[in-house]
Amino acid sequence: MDIVIENMTKTYGRQKAVDNISLQVKTGEVLGFLGPNGAGKTTTMKAITSFLIPDSGKIFIGNISVNDNPQEAKKNIGYLPENNPLYEDMPVIDYLQFCAGIEGVAKDKINDKVREVIQTCGITREKHKKISELSKGYKQRVGLAQALIHDPEVLILDEPTTGLDPNQIVEIRELIKKIGKEKTVILSSHILAEVEATCDRIMIINKGKIVADGTAEELRGQAQGSEMLKVTIEDGSLDEIFKGLQLLNTVELVDFADKSTQTFQVKSKPGQSSRREVFNLCVKNGWTLTQLTFVETRLEDIFRELTLEN
């Protein structure tokens, strides 16, 4: 089931939390929401799950309008809210049975289903404990189990891996990827590597607007206007090498990366490459070039570039 948002706007008081967003996520796609604090990720997710009613715009789950038919739309959604609210006074297993019940899982299937998600989310040993007695990570797993209990077509996960240990993070990522093959998933995260590893598509939101949308590769391509090199040059004085590099006519900017090893960051002018020039410079001066590598634009840099205030 596709998720479609058309021109959604949501204002809190005077502040626009989401500003005229439109997007579509297809079945079999995992979309990662990135964005600084307060960008509007959670607000968007709450609107998709019909918990928040937007000021304007339309949201569809498959062909079902969330606004006109929320009950039908909600049947297809598994949702892990931001700070993972749970009925703390209930034992894990009772809680999951309760959730299965209101999600409409058939009575004779409830026990099987509960057993299944308990296993998938790795909470077998904790299942008889009261939720309030669980550690943060285990609570997070219960929240995830609850979202999966009715095999939803659409999964909305707001920061699903917060509080999980590294092993579990990997397991949950694998799980999301597996689910994402047949289902439609939107997740938000502040861990860029995680989004890159889990999601087919990344969407960066800033101040309620979509500022980037595409695969990790596409985003890199867009941001990578100019070539960035890392070079290490020996057998010459630091200052001379620095000046030499700076004077090359393809070079825009030179920076020290590590003075002790004589390593520099060389940024070329847009659309130009400095690799030959650097090599020839070394030959001319009798310096030894021991490293020349591309610096790939990291997702972090793209993120900072798109979301940082000037």
């Binding site: 909600k74 809210p81 749970l86 703390e88 209101i102």
Partner: peptide, 14 residues
């Protein structure tokens, strides 16, 4: 207070 209302109201109930 605890936010569980969000959980409840995003289930298929009114």
């Amino acid at each position: 207070r605890s936010g569980t209302i969000e959980l409840l109201l995003t289930k298929p109930i009114s």
